[in-house]
Design a protein around this nucleic acid. Sequence first.
DNA 1: AGGGCCATGTAAGTCGTTACATGATTGT
DNA 2: ACAATCATGTAACGACTTACATGGCCCT
Lengths: 186, 186
Amino acid sequence: MALRYALLGLLTKKPSTGYELTQQFKETMIHFWSAHHTQIYRELGKMEKEQLVSFKIVPQEDLPDKKIYSIEERGYNQLIEWLAHHTVDPPKMKNEQLMRVSLFHLIPKDEAIQFLEKSKEHHQMVLQHMDRWKEEHGVDKHIQKDRLGEYLTLEYGRRQMRTWIEWCDWAIEFIDVIIEEQGEDN
Amino acid sequence: MALRYALLGLLTKKPSTGYELTQQFKETMIHFWSAHHTQIYRELGKMEKEQLVSFKIVPQEDLPDKKIYSIEERGYNQLIEWLAHHTVDPPKMKNEQLMRVSLFHLIPKDEAIQFLEKSKEHHQMVLQHMDRWKEEHGVDKHIQKDRLGEYLTLEYGRRQMRTWIEWCDWAIEFIDVIIEEQGEDN
DNA sequence: AGGGCCATGTAAGTCGTTACATGATTGT
DNA sequence: ACAATCATGTAACGACTTACATGGCCCT
């Protein structure tokens, strides 16, 4: 159900096509929720049937038609209702990297360290990307209210990246110092 | 597929029943993966059919029979294969709390702050719980190798909790100072 | 010449959740 | 008295992923 409210939330800001919503979702919500475009189109279809949203078809030259979705009163009401009365579920994570870390006892020390170093680099790039995005999109203190959530969650994402990077350093150091054997598994 | 490897990983440490695996999973892997007991039983059933694991039935007095699962060679090989050749998927999160935060522009300021304060408290309790667990289960520097992953991922979990708690403080302060209007929505 | 973007989806399959079932024992 | 723990699952449903389809434009 939460994806539904994510989409309704985006539509409170401006009417958009499914494609645009997918982009907006990836830019602002991917740090705390995952969804493919197929899921977004299906959810929009369902919501249209339930009259939470409506769409206008806009024909285009040389490109397929657009469907521009807008939030309807029923949709807005349900969104507010959810915000007011729904107790949130605990976060659910699926982190394959940590799964692999939890199986480090089965691989050689240097492979483990290599894995962490690559992961650290990758997360440094993601952090840089977030920093750049923040600057380019003017996410700063003088913000209009409808971008408050974007600002707060982006900052959370950046802190999360830093935590991961620092943890990688700590873990590499730990393995290097504590584990003695060389390249053997088990 | 990753849940499968989580279970195989636990079974490399010792043979266990589905129930015990559920407990072990909750204690050591819940910080980076989510799964219900029903899913664990199903996955064990599938793996038994594929001969990755086997079980012995142990009858008990006054309690239903136990099925004690052990990892088989095929299972061990597939696990090592996965560790060596599988490129990890990016983490997937489903965090309803952050979803709600991203919709803060639709609720009054004081409700948003209240929400963050409650969330902070909750995460402080989880952190305390992790700290206690760490002490009670002797997760320290003088650790046998098959608990390395447990140590590393638990430390990540604790850092994540601290990050959340600190972010809550920051966000509360930010909302309090920046947002001027009192209790109005939108 | 090949990939990415624009823009929309369908179909098939897997994964994950929720509710239910059993029944004795131990704790509050 | 009521809930929790032990121990195992089945059934039904809903969420999510992956592969496929269309087709022209723009960039390198």
